[in-house]
Design a protein around this nucleic acid. Structure first.
Lengths: 206, 206
DNA sequence: GACAGTACTGTATATAATTACAGTATTCAA
DNA sequence: TTGAATACTGTAATTATATACAGTACTGTC
């Protein structure tokens, strides 16, 4: 969708709000009244501009025949965040085969934004309050700071650990005394940070 | 809302579908065409009946001035579940003063249904993966089985612990060796089960 | 400096749409 | 067995609404 001018955006938003509160779209005269236009034609031209830019569709010769495009959240958001289960060896994390379901919630819940939910296997992060079966909310990024809980990929393995950096030396530490830290060998192992933990959902009871 | 006749329900659903696909409500003539009525008045009378029964609202002298009622989820669900923070002494858990915000998500996420989210203070349930600041998803009920994590009220205190029953003896056990179990004295303390834990949300990063 | 895009005023008109009024027929409860 | 609600046909009037056309003015850009 092409960029809207401030005025066009105002009008688009008014139509959305009107639709929301009244249950049906406004007429050109109603839009003109809201913005103080003395001519309904001012609105018609704005609407035509919005059609050209793909922000709405107009049904010709139809009263209130305005349909906003992109009013609802996009399909991705509508369906909710993907929940990534067991990751098949070598496949991208978000490959369809790995997505077991989708989960919808308040986008502002996590900050920075969660891009997907990763089902956690095992108890290696138990002392960080991350248990088997939990869904870790992950913000997809390659950048992680020391001390953050990260989703990392080493070869075919995807793992959740706390990242520690000391100069060039990287370490992936579990939070459970029964598990040992992973120190990737930069020569042999390819370590990729897939994202950082921004929250957690425990869908089953405790 | 009063019971609709089959015909009225058909018309109500058509309006919903039309609204969904076109982006605006239908005219009486369009509804008549869909059902094969030869007179727009047949529709007008159906609409009036639907207004009497509270299934929709009509804006007079307004083209397509139809607003469906009960099409979206009810207001409670719209606003999301209440997040209960620090509970003021003696107040009901869901008293407005205790609700710090609301959080919206997939209702099917927790089972049984979550009625509210309780902000957890302290680390007494650390080993159950429940940390300070976590939001415990709670199903409001007075009934709890031994072994379940419960929200209990003893006098003015609201606490999250694991419930253990042995005959008539009740015990609220923390999951952290640094804390001691609470054994309420049935003579002195009034123990009320407020609900059971059905899940958890950790809104902040880890 | 001409041209396209934005942002309007002002007037007029055809048609889209609601709504009133006069009927017919059926069903179901008091 | 009468009355009220449902479920329509048919016609007509009024008003709600979209839209065409003729202008004005400002802005950026090729």
């Amino acid at each position: 969708m092409q960029e809207l001018t401030p005025r066009q955006a105002e009008i688009w938003q008014f139509i959305r709000d009107y639709q929301e509160t009244e249950g049906y779209p406004p007429t050109r005269a109603e839009i003109a009244a809201r913005f103080g236009f003395r001519s309904p034609n001012a609105v018609t031209e704005h609407l035509n501009a919005l059609v050209r830019k793909g922000a709405l569709a107009l049904a010709p010769d139809t009263s209130r025949g305005i349909r906003l495009i992109g009013a609802e959240a996009d399909a991705e958001e509508e369906a909710g965040l993907p929940v990534v289960g067991q990751v098949a060896a070598g496949s991208p994390l978000l490959a369809e085969q790995n997505v077991t379901q989708r989960c919808q919630f308040d986008p502002g819940l996590f900050s920075p934004r969660a891009d997907y939910l990763l089902r956690v296997y095992g108890l290696s992060m138990k002392d960080a309050g991350i248990l088997d079966g939990d869904w870790l909310a992950v913000h997809a990024t390659r950048e992680a700071r020391s001390g953050q809980v990260v989703v990392a990929r080493i070869g075919d393995q995807v793992t959740v650990k706390r990242l520690w950096k000391q100069g060039k030396r990287l370490e992936l530490r579990p939070e459970n005394p029964d598990f040992a830290a992973i120190v990737p060998d930069p020569e042999r192992d390819e370590l990729v940070i897939e994202g950082i933990a921004v929250g957690l959902i425990r869908p089953n009871g405790t």
